[in-house]
């Protein structure tokens, strides 16, 4: 059990997440009763899915560090599978995709080993070199460059980016390697990223008028964006000093990174879905769409927040 090693703040934060879910479920139930003529099926479905996602995430975080890492590796697998199922692929690329899938256990193995050096170069360097080699061996050159680019983009977004959230888990301060700061750092990232999504949505829905990127995501407004970032910074200032080694000033930076990064991640995945003429990446999470729809923001916030945190402190990692 990792529960004993989780700080008292972590335990309260996890209880707080459950509290928030109870509260929002109540609100959804009340507005459902107050406006029976309107259809809230999607909202109710979304709420139900939030419960499942939060339960699996919190249980994985409680069980052990290895279980948490395996959980994130599984998230990467589901996201990469969605991506590979959406893109127009060539028949010859099946084998290459198989190799791309194999990079998931390897990448998360470096994390389990706390091997920073391999974690940071494996996908951008070694997989970047290996996948085209596999393609050359198969030998189909029609659409070669496009296929190589499309597959590597997916690997970067769904495996490399998301794995940064897992590396946060194994971080230990150089001065104080016995204290487990990782779970707090990771929970802060994931919670603020998801909160930022919701905050931007609510600000935009209630007050938003002027569109910010009409060609990519017509629902996004300036008010939603600015209101969301501001709310996320405010929450970061409250949460980060409590859950992580960051002070207030650091927390402002983390809030800005997550607010901005989350927005860009969201519209980047939107642009890809628009390019592929799909609304949702799959039907895996009722009310949300697919797993890519849920972790779109995280593909930007995870690496950016990780680098920020990594730069702020001295860390005790292998190969650093």
């Amino acid at each position: 059990m990792q529960w004993e090693s989780l700080s008292i703040q972590m335990r309260w934060a996890m209880a707080g997440i459950v509290g928030l879910l109870v509260l929002s479920t109540l609100i959804v139930w009340i507005i459902g009763k107050a406006f029976p003529q309107r259809n809230y099926t999607e909202l109710q479905q979304r709420m139900k899915t939030w419960w499942t996602v939060a339960a699996v995430f919190l249980i994985a975080l409680t069980l052990s560090r290895t279980v948490s890492i395996i959980f994130l590796a599984f998230v990467s697998f589901l996201a990469l599978k969605e991506y590979f199922s959406l893109i127009p692929a060539r028949r010859a690329d099946r084998q290459v995709m198989f190799w791309a899938y194999l990079s998931i256990p390897v990448q998360y193995f470096w994390i389990e080993q706390e091997w920073y050096g391999m974690f940071i170069v494996f996908i951008p360097v070694y997989m970047f070199l290996l996948l085209p080699l596999r393609m050359v061996v198969i030998g189909n050159t029609d659409g070669f460059l496009r296929a190589a680019g499309v597959m590597h983009w997916g690997l970067m977004a769904t495996v490399y980016s998301i794995s940064h959230a897992a590396f946060l888990l194994v971080l230990r301060l150089k001065d104080d390697p016995e204290i487990f700061v990782g779970p707090g750092l990771m929970l802060t990232l994931v919670f603020l990223t998801q909160f930022n999504d919701i905050a931007q949505y609510l600000w935009g829905k209630t007050l938003g008028k002027r569109r910010i990127v009409p060609k990519v995501s017509p629902g996004k407004t300036w008010v939603g964006f600015i209101g969301g970032v501001a709310t996320t910074i405010a929450l970061a200032v409250v949460l980060a000093p409590w859950l992580t080694p960051m002070n207030r000033m650091h927390a402002v930076g983390a809030g800005v990174i997550i607010g901005l990064g989350g927005f860009i991640g969201d519209i980047t995945i939107s642009a890809i879905k628009r390019d592929l003429h799909v609304k949702d990446s799959s039907g895996l999470l009722p009310g949300h769409g697919g797993i890519l729809d849920r972790i779109d923001s995280l593909t930007y916030t995870a690496p950016l927040y990780f680098h920020y945190v990594y730069w702020l402190f001295g860390w005790h990692t292998h190969g650093a």
Partner: peptide, 14 residues
């Protein structure tokens, strides 16, 4: 795509 005829290798696709 996942397991076409004549192929022994299963590649995950939705």
């Amino acid at each position: 795509k996942a397991l076409p005829r004549g192929e022994g290798l299963l590649v995950p696709f939705i």
